[in-house]
Write a protein that binds this DNA or RNA. Structure first.
Lengths: 208, 208
DNA sequence: GTCTATACTGAGATAGAC
DNA sequence: GTCTATCTCAGTATAGAC
């Protein structure tokens, strides 16, 4: 069958979003999909590459939309900088939108980070997008030294990852799997938090 | 030998800090330590429990110092709230101090988060400390709804985790393993970033 | 009480027949 | 394209030597 590949992808997405990447064995996936173990390696090469495909098919549309929104704001702003808040909106709104339509997407994104899933995959699919947004933030916050901006982008990535993931380490009021509405609310809060953090004055240099 | 346990702990700390928890097999650890495989299970029970011991012996001193500093600030402040910046200082200064003395500690803390290491371990060792700091922040930021404060604490944990870890996903100017000075500077920047984020106005409620 | 040798189960990966 | 059989390596469990 030509849809063996599709059946594997569907089963993998559901199971990995649900239980995590490490906790989901290929044997579990193939049982769910009703296919043979070797088929996974035939179609994808490895468990890691299977994950890679899952991410591509979900994330590329989001990243495209992010860049499109950013460009729209930049056209609006003419030669001036786009505000921090608008840059954040261009980055998070497409994610909120995608999350509202497909909760599995949300969970998968969260897993990717919280399980420390293969920095190479992240780099491959997100570096170009991050690079563009870094540039935009640099123009929005010209008083920040580049090193400090990079550090804050790390903080932003970390905060986002943790926000999006389901395994909470302090009580949040949300029990169990967060709904799409929870997700939306959390990301709105994140945007406010991040604009406060990004707009903070530069850290004074101290002698070590 | 009575120091078999110690040899295992030392080898495990070095290897896990270096390569990560998942990537470090018990067989690798025992080869490095020059002991038998079963000795690990005799002394610790499981790989997970070994990690648990590693974390306890490093983190409990830091958490004790955190609570001590917070109490000092609270005594100073009398019946008023401790400022956000002081709460953050009480939380991060002991970590900076520990990191300056022992870089492995830093890396291990980072791994714990970035690999999504066993929420149960984190919960066990950090919940009491987080609870106290949550309470202090609640007093410092009484205008924030509790749910929003909890969300921001998640963001804080995420930002901290990512900041402390070695695997960067955007360029930072720091190549390779960060030094103790890099670590110190990064955490200072984090404190500034977080105080900006925590002090941001509450997120307006919107109809979904 | 401590430690060694060895075996068990389940994981991802691969070769080769069909 | 698909499937069977097999390989290697992981964490774990146990029996028994000292």
């Amino acid at each position: 069958m030509i849809d063996t590949k599709q059946k594997i992808l569907d089963a993998a997405e559901r199971l990995i979003a649900d239980q995590g990447y490490a906790a989901t064995s290929l044997r579990h996936i193939i049982a769910e999909a009703g296919v043979n173990l070797a088929a996974v390696h035939y179609h994808f090469g490895s468990k890691e590459d299977l994950l890679d495909e899952l991410i591509v098919r979900k994330a590329s549309a989001v990243n495209r939309e992010r860049l499109a929104q950013l460009e729209r704001f930049e056209t609006e702003a003419g030669s001036g900088p786009v505000t921090v808040e608008k840059v954040l909106a261009a980055f998070f709104d497409p994610m909120i939108e995608a999350g509202s339509r497909s909760p599995e997407f949300v969970k998968l994104m969260g897993r990717m980070y919280t399980e420390g899933l293969i920095p190479a995959i992240v780099a491959k699919h997100f570096h170009p997008t991050f690079a563009r947004f870094t540039q935009a933030l640099h123009r929005a916050l010209p008083h920040l030294p580049e090193a400090e901006l990079f550090a804050r982008l790390q903080f932003m990535i970390g905060a986002m990852s943790h926000a999006v993931c389901g395994d909470r380490q302090v009580p949040t009021g949300v029990i169990g799997t967060p709904s799409a509405a929870d997700f939306r609310r959390t990301l709105r809060r994140l945007m406010v938090f991040l604009s406060g953090g990004l707009r903070a004055p530069a850290t004074p240099e101290v002698q070590q």
